[in-house]
Design a protein around this nucleic acid. Sequence first.
RNA 1: GGCCCCAUCGUCUAGUGGCCUAGGACGUCAGGUUCUCAUCCUGAAGAUCGCGGGUUCAAAUCCCACUGGGGUCACCA
Length: 466
Amino acid sequence: MVRTRIAPSPTGFPHIGTIYQTLFNYAFAKGREGTFIVRIEDTDRARFVEGAEDKIYAALDWFSLTENESPRKGGEFAPYKQSERLDLYQKYAKQLVEDNHAYYCDCTPERLDEMRKKMQAEKRTPMYDGHCRELRKTSGVIRLKIIPKQSYTWIDGVRGEMKFETSNDIQPLVDDQVILKSDGFPTYHLAVVVDDHLMKITHAVRGEEWIPSTAKHVILYHYLGWEKDMPLFFHTPLLRNPDKSKLSKRHGHTDVTWYKEEGFLPQAILNFLAHMGWTHPEEKEIFSLDEFVSLFDLKDIRAVGPIFDLTKLTWLNGMYIREMSVQDLVKALKTYQSEFCEKKDSLDSIAKEKFEEIVALAQSRISTFKEFYPMITQFFSDSQFILTTDTDREVAKSLQEEFEKLKEWNKDTILEVLRNILKKHSIRMPILYTIVTGQERGLPLPESLEILGKPTVLSRLQKALV
RNA sequence: GGCCCCAUCGUCUAGUGGCCUAGGACGUCAGGUUCUCAUCCUGAAGAUCGCGGGUUCAAAUCCCACUGGGGUCACCA
């Protein structure tokens, strides 16, 4: 029975990297009738952010990556919030002390800083063994007791067998990690091992930045006697900035809500993310979440850190927009508009009625929802014709004359007028666009003018020519 | 700096010893369709598979060293 999990900490906005992890965890579990769990790792009181947990759920819901067990959903292994499981961590920490695998240490933070600085100055890896171990107190933090020169192995599903030693001839390689803090909360290392074990996690999928600390986790599994059902670890590549460093707010967009504000579709983002480190067996570029779930296997993940390429995401998003029905697109744009657009009611009343037609015209011309409104400014009620040169005025006059003569107002008759005028004034299309929309290009002009209607067009011309 | 991970077009990638004079996608450029733009269609440029050694009849594919990039070294996760 496959059981996977994500373990976000409620310390801010939901990170796109978390969604990347979620996608793999979710897809692997779902594809095998397994269980996908969300566990909230709120063991750091200092970094806790009110409301961050709800934002995580909101993000999961937006992406349709719904969990089976979590604080909000409950489940057999509740509670799923680490701050509500302190007694468990304390119990195991004390057991480790009793078994002589861990020890109390009451070095003050100031003293530790001092030691750390000294060791860094000497270019040594900080290690607390020997400084604290003799103290043998019954208070303070609890540290893991690392035995030098021990070797351990574990299996990384992405990279194969991983070996490490606790020390080499020169220096320790794994330090006496704190597992229980002085406030009684566990550190990540203890909490993740205890919870993954108790929650029967079978596949631990997480970012590559965890590889170094996996050593500590493996040691904990051994000390606790749980090595037999240690989960299989899968360390996924890290999403990168264009400069190849770990994706960060400074160089890229990490906040999930940014993508929502920019008008990206969750399905497109997921599809894009699936390409990072994984390839469709038929090298298909576009596939649904369901299809991904049915095909995905953790063992197919590549270990190479991909650069998060917004350009390709944008293209993919455009493809998704084009595949939507006009009705769905209308709905999506309205939702987007009500959430993110200021000028909600500035559409011309006729344009409001014919909104679906406008959307149909724009569908192949936008890649994100955000591009929609700037593209249809000619339909705003305060929109007007813009005449900047003498030629513009002459063209506008011709338009007025010709349009007035039109008995039938439709895109064909309008186009004929436009063609004649282009010829008469020896101008090119972009000039007309600029007059009507202020931009050199945009939605098809005859269709746009048809939608606006003869009275509106004529009155705008009249106004502009005054 | 120590330890660890990684290395194919600008980017995402296919490739698991012969089908590779390295395939696809985005992007770029050119052409077609067309009322502008976009969509759509066609085509082109673009990687001596980081570098150097091996192993082999045969290597992008296996091994070693080097170089480069990344991660990590908290009472944060």
